[in-house]
Amino acid sequence: MTAHGHKPVGPPIHGMAARFEDASALTAAARAARLEGYARMDAYSPFPIHEMDEALGIRRSILPFLVLAAGIAGCVGGFGMQWWMSVVDYPLNIAGKPLVSWPQWVPVAFETTVLLSALTAAFGMFALNGFPMPYHPMFNVKGFDRVTTDAFFLCIEADDPQFDVTQTAKFLQGLGALEVSEVVH
């Protein structure tokens, strides 16, 4: 949205979607589209298809590094919290142990490590996926409600430099798509 409340300036449609028979056909189509030079596209399937990462050229997500950073923060934070609370701010002699009795801090530090890492893994994934996103143009595609059961779609997006309504539709048809349709916003 711009300040004037107009719709954003951009391609009038989101892209061109094609439905395919099964996972094999979808993967083959994605590979062919990449070979053809298309770069901006996405595949939609009812279950993860491992071959798709390579077919679409999806790069490894940075999620593991976010989780690692969160884990380090949780570990250092867990130890730091216990050290500050039981050595600096409120020192107490318990069972004659030294104030810095680190072995007894390991369980809590471990839990804070896991807590922060796990929350980062889950919510980091949501954030990178752009969730929550209840509306998306793909939902306008006819039969897309079957994508969570047994339908397979490939969508070449309109902002791809090579995108052309007729050419792209013809190309997708040539890949053996069962159905090709424009994706409206």
């Binding site: 994605a30 996405d42 595949a43 939609y44 399937s45 009812p46 279950f47 993860p48 298809i49 798709m52 990462d53 679409l56 999806i58 997500s61 999620l63 593991p64 989780v67 890492s117 893994a121 889950a122 980091g124 994934m125 949501f126 990178l128 996926n129 752009g130 969730f131 929550p132 996103m133 209840p134 509306y135 998306h136 793909m138 939902f139 897309f144 994508v147 969570t148």
Partner: peptide, 19 residues
């Protein structure tokens, strides 16, 4: 959350599950 079975989403989703 707007799940639509996108391959990019599946990629991160599976990674998050493993992590």
């Amino acid at each position: 959350l707007g799940w639509r079975g996108s391959a990019r989403h599946w990629h991160r989703y599976e990674m998050a599950s493993l992590l």
